[in-house]
Amino acid sequence: MRWVACAALLLAAIALTSCRFIATANVPALANEGAGHGAAPFDPDKSVTSIWAPKVVPYFEKKGGPFVQVRELAAKSPDEAGARFGYRAKSEGTPWTLMTRIDGVVVGADTESRAATIDIDVSGQGKTDAVVQIGPAIRGTAIRDALGFVSFNDFTNQIDFAQFGKAFNTYVYHETLEKLPRESLIGRKVSVLGAYPLVSTADTPLVTPVAIIIGPKP
């Protein structure tokens, strides 16, 4: 329920009068199954459901930084930005995954593709600062990769680890993104809590949300 409180704050912060709130809560309080292999066959969806509300969202709330701050620090020092706002597994060739809160305005939307996205202007200059995935097809495993308490060592193999990564995307789509408006998005206010891999500081961040609020038509 922590996200509800957070959402209320966000709402107040962006001063929307009749914002459409998309709940990510109401997750059944299952016992924490843990992510790894054990006696029972690994069930990625059940694992994600069990940790989402108690662990994942609070983790993002705690570590996520305001977008401009995260972007500026990442441009200056990826490692500093990563240590403060992100996580990466300790192997070579793995990019940082950064967590961020984005408040801005929708300036573009691709809802034709199954991998639908919205472009968000944060700085108010009419340019795209971040691209946010709204599904149903969601690229990558940014949510999983942001979580410092998840390790590949705890999985039998890449297949289980991949299924776990995919399960976060499926979960956030069905709990949240599926219910978002898909029409006349341009000009609406938007608030996102999400993660993106810092592949290159030159690329526009491609953010996978764990929570998102899209305001009414302006």
């Binding site: 597994a89 300790k90 192997s91 070579e92 060739g93 793995t94 990019p95 390790s151 590949f152 060592n153 999985f155 890449q158």
Partner: peptide, 25 residues
């Protein structure tokens, strides 16, 4: 090459890699 570097570190100092399972993008 990385595998050999980690083998070399282990042979010389008995230092095992920090993480057994390592993914490279």
């Amino acid at each position: 090459q990385l595998a050999v570097e980690q083998a070399d570190a282990y042979i010389k100092t008995k230092a095992a890699p920090k993480s057994e399972k390592q993914l490279m993008d």
